[in-house]
Simulated scan of single mutants.
Amino acid sequence: MTVSNPSPQVLLLPGWQNSDADHWQSRWEQRYGYTRVQQHDWQRPLRGDWSIQLQEAVLECEREVVLVAHSLSCILTAWWAVHSPLAKTRVKAALLVAPGDVEQADLRNVLPGWSPVLLQRLPFASVLVGSHNDPYCSWSRAQQMAHAWGARLVDAGAVGHINTDSGLGDWDAGHALLQQLMKDERHGD
């Protein structure tokens, strides 16, 4: 008798100011029952505090996890992965969507303590989805991050910051990417 591994638990990591009710992350939470990692302060994020919240969320999971990060939480994921041993042992993969480039002057000023972006290879499989007209991260910067993190880069076209304003609704194409990433990792064991 073959015992199959249970599917990983999906943790949603919203970016700065959280994901509103119409954001694809909120829709996925409602539709698929994924778990949103809550932060103490969505308006004035502190990297250390957000990292502790992520650490605790991963520790609470009874099985391996897949991270679904948006915007600032892509930067959080890269930073946390370098500093937490759990990244190697508990995280199966990550979908990184529309990273916020905290080294841009306008973001560096409103999000102090998040720069520089750690550009080291992630210890788990990852896919980075970027947009050609994201006001918070240029396409060339998204390419640089994907390369440094060892992530497969997916071109979303010109859809802005891949958030509610992008008009993606449930963003079925993004969910298909997540499902493929999870399937690839299950077969990679």
Rank of each mutant, 00 (worst) to 15 (best):
V110G: 08
A156R: 12
Y136H: 13
L122R: 11
C137W: 08
H147P: 02
L128D: 04
L118S: 14
P112L: 00
G150S: 01
W114P: 08
N109V: 00
P123S: 01
M145N: 00
M145G: 00
P123K: 03
G157H: 12
L122H: 12
S126A: 15
G100V: 11
A158N: 09
R141M: 04
S126T: 12
L153F: 12
P135K: 02
S126M: 10
L119A: 13
F124N: 00
P112R: 00
G150W: 01
Q104I: 02
A146F: 14
V129R: 05
L122M: 10
A142C: 13
R141I: 02
V129M: 07
A148M: 04
C137L: 09
R141F: 05
R152L: 14
L107K: 05
A142S: 15
S131A: 04
A158Q: 14
R152E: 15
V117W: 09
A156F: 10
G150Q: 01
Q143I: 05
S138C: 04
L119Q: 12
V154H: 09
L107D: 04
N109F: 00
N109L: 00
V154W: 11
V117Q: 08
G157Q: 09
A125S: 14
R121K: 15
G157S: 08
L118N: 13
L153I: 06
V102E: 11
D106M: 06
P112T: 02
L107F: 05
L122W: 11
L122F: 09
P123Y: 02
R152F: 11
P112H: 00
A156D: 09
L122Y: 11
V127C: 06
W139P: 07
S140H: 10
A125G: 07
Q144F: 07
V127I: 14
A125F: 03
D106Q: 09
S115W: 03
A146T: 11
G157A: 07
Q104L: 13
G130I: 01
V129T: 03
Q143R: 13
Q144D: 15
R108C: 12
G160H: 09
E103T: 04
A156G: 08
D106R: 09
R121M: 15
L118M: 15
C137K: 12
R108P: 07
A151Y: 01
S131R: 04
S126C: 10
F124S: 00
F124A: 00
R141L: 04
L122V: 10
S140N: 09
H161W: 07
P99V: 01
V127D: 06
L107E: 06
D101C: 03
A158D: 14
V127W: 07
L111C: 05
V102P: 13
H161D: 13
A125P: 04
H147K: 12
N133C: 01
V110I: 15
S131P: 06
Y136I: 03
A148Y: 09
W149L: 03
V102D: 12
V129F: 03
A98L: 01
L153H: 07
L128H: 08
W149R: 02
H147Y: 10
S140T: 15
P123R: 04
V129P: 08
G113I: 05
L128T: 02
G160M: 11
G113H: 08
S115D: 06
V110T: 12
S140R: 14
A151R: 03
W149F: 02
D134V: 00
W149C: 02
